[in-house]
């Protein structure tokens, strides 16, 4: 069974002209790492939060979001509490904002599983010590306050905390963005270890294409609330089939490339107050033609590679016309 299976997820917020999430399909299997990539406002964080039904006020969701076979969107309060303690857990971007600074780290780790009677407090403490050791800390951290440890250490605490209920699915929302690059490597390798050891599926939300390429089995790229491209990580980055993916790759400064001008993407993502017709990327796209503004492209598989899909009318023209073309800011 697929650990996470999102189908046709459409999310509307008050005071917006179009859905913030518009027909999102996304699946993560056991032990699989899927990266959800996009820029701010693309809907990637909202998608991951919907998995725990952490929705903004007034949000209306359609479609199905199944975690281990159960639809999150129709769960009762009790089922939802169970989901959040035992089945799926979130590692947030900023551990200092997500962990209560007035409570000891031990309390943070054990509170949820004890309150929800998953474990007795003695068993919870034993589990906390085991997980702290797994993330490279010691039981001494239990007695510490968040302010007494570094940001990198606190992010490990958060990862340990997310594993307390032995979840099948881990959602990580930019878990390394607030960290230094060398610390980022440690946290990522830790997430990989945890996945191997505990068999969790991982949905990794990030804006960093290099990081997504380095750690994930599959990648989905979001733009304006839609998944515009999905596929095996190596394949997707080597042969992008959506002009937005290609443009993102081209605009990322590469330490290994010779210096010089970057290929920027002209314009800005569409505003939520405006309705969209056709392809949301069309106004910024160098390949756009009349059909792009008239008709929304549907996800279509790449020739000979059904796992690689892109929602673009001109996928087959990519890599021919885009080469050598420069779009200036």
């Amino acid at each position: 069974m697929t650990t996470l299976d999102i189908r046709g997820l459409r999310l509307r917020l008050p005071h917006t002209a179009r859905p913030v999430l518009d027909g999102v399909d996304l699946a993560v299997g056991p032990r699989e790492t899927v990266a959800l990539v996009g820029e701010s406002g693309s809907g990637k964080t909202l998608t991951s939060r919907t998995v725990l039904r952490l929705l903004p006020e007034g949000a209306v969701a359609e479609g199905t979001v199944e975690v281990a076979g159960q639809d999150v969107l129709t769960m009762t309060a009790k089922e939802l509490r169970d989901l959040r303690t035992r089945t799926a857990a979130m590692v947030f971007q900023d551990p200092r904002a997500a962990i209560n600074p007035l409570r000891r780290i031990g309390d943070f780790l054990t509170e949820s599983v004890v309150l929800n009677k998953v474990l007795t407090s003695a068993a919870a403490e034993a589990r906390a010590v085991e997980l702290l050791e797994a993330v490279g800390l010691t039981s001494a951290a239990l007695r510490r306050y968040p302010s007494q440890v570094s940001g990198g250490m606190l992010q490990r605490v958060m990862i340990a905390g997310s594993l307390m209920g032995d979840p099948k699915l881990l959602l990580a929302d930019e878990p390394t963005t607030a960290l230094d690059v060398t610390t980022q490597a440690e946290v990522v390798s830790l997430l990989g270890d945890m996945r191997e050891r505990f068999g969790t599926a991982l949905l990794f939300v990030t804006h960093d294409l290099g990081l997504a390429a380095a750690i994930s089995d599959r990648v989905s790229v979001m733009y304006a609330g839609r998944i515009v491209e999905s596929g095996p990580a190596a394949e997707l980055f080597a042969h992008p089939r959506h002009p937005y993916t290609k443009a993102l790759l081209d605009s990322t400064p590469d330490p290994d490339a010779p210096p010089g001008r970057l290929t920027a993407i002209e314009g800005q993502p569409p505003d939520l107050r405006e309705e969209l017709s056709g392809c949301p990327f069309a106004p910024r796209c160098v390949l756009a033609t009349a059909v792009c503004t008239e008709q929304a492209p549907q996800a279509a598989p790449a020739p000979g590679n059904p796992a690689h899909t892109a929602a673009c009318h001109h996928s087959d023209r990519l890599g021919t016309r885009l080469e050598g073309e420069t779009v200036d800011a």
Binding site: V181, A185, E186, S189, A213, I215
Partner: peptide, 20 residues
């Protein structure tokens, strides 16, 4: 170490952790 820490395909976070 800084240079090796930049994520790219073939990136080895374990080796970076050890070097660090």
């Amino acid at each position: 170490l800084l240079s090796a820490s930049v994520p790219r395909p073939g990136w080895d976070p374990r080796a970076i952790g050890a070097a660090r």
